[in-house]
Design a protein around this nucleic acid. Structure first.
Lengths: 118, 118
DNA sequence: TATGAATGTGAAGAATTCTTCAAGTCGACG
DNA sequence: CGTCGACTTGAAGAATTCTTCACATTCATA
């Protein structure tokens, strides 16, 4: 009973679906970073960050090593950076002519066939 | 007060974080499809599918048109296909040497610095 | 070895997201 | 106009995911 690929994909994307996790991945695009450093850039409680790092760890999007008394995180594979770029491209397109539409809609506005482009 | 980009990104990925939504997008990679057709390939209740289509619609990942008595969906932009490809690449890598690890871990197993590569 | 700094984890309530069933809408057609 | 088919949406309970606070770990150092 293999895990259906589309389900693995969904899990994967869900892992990326959190603001803090995205920020962490973006910071890590520039190279390995100790938690302490992530912490000073993200303005969040240490325990919250730690939780989110745990999520990224589970799916191997990042890997950890200990250096002295600091814990250092880095991207699990450079492909992650590529994925983020692809996402940015799409998002830029979508946001370009939609403005804040994306978020507004997520908050409940309706879009229907025929009413979409109003 | 603009919507922080990293938040928009998180929303975007979360939208992709559902098995049914992923399947729909993959089916649409081959071109527009009426709901009826999606329905026969996905084995899910019509109302559930409809809900998920609504989510994809809100974020403009798909667009809708009505053709006669059928409702036809299609990708909002071809970039989506590219994104899915990038994701598949990463996933293939991760799953390659990890097997079902991804899913097992999401279900709770622990991974710690030093214990990662067991 | 006792302390302190840097991180991680248990637990519980809050917030979101899913799933389902019943009911509603809209175009096609008799 | 009335009804059928194809979808969508309202509502409510179930399941997940988040956030936080308190406490536990681990390593460095005095």
């Amino acid at each position: 009973m293999p895990v259906p690929l589309y389900q693995a994909k969904a899990e994967f994307f869900r892992t990326l679906g959190h603001p803090v996790r995205i920020r962490v991945l973006e910071l890590l695009q520039d190279g390995p970073r100790p938690v302490r450093e992530l912490l000073e850039q993200i303005d969040i409680e240490a325990s919250s960050l730690s939780r989110q790092l745990a999520v990224l760890r589970r799916t191997q999007l990042v890997t950890v090593t200990r250096e002295g008394d600091a814990v250092v995180y880095e991207l699990g594979t450079p492909d992650v950076a590529e994925l983020l770029r692809a996402a940015r491209r799409i998002l830029t397109d979508l946001l370009a002519d939609q403005g804040e539409l994306l978020v507004q809609l997520r908050n409940g506005a309706a879009v229907e066939p025929g009413g979409v482009h109003r």
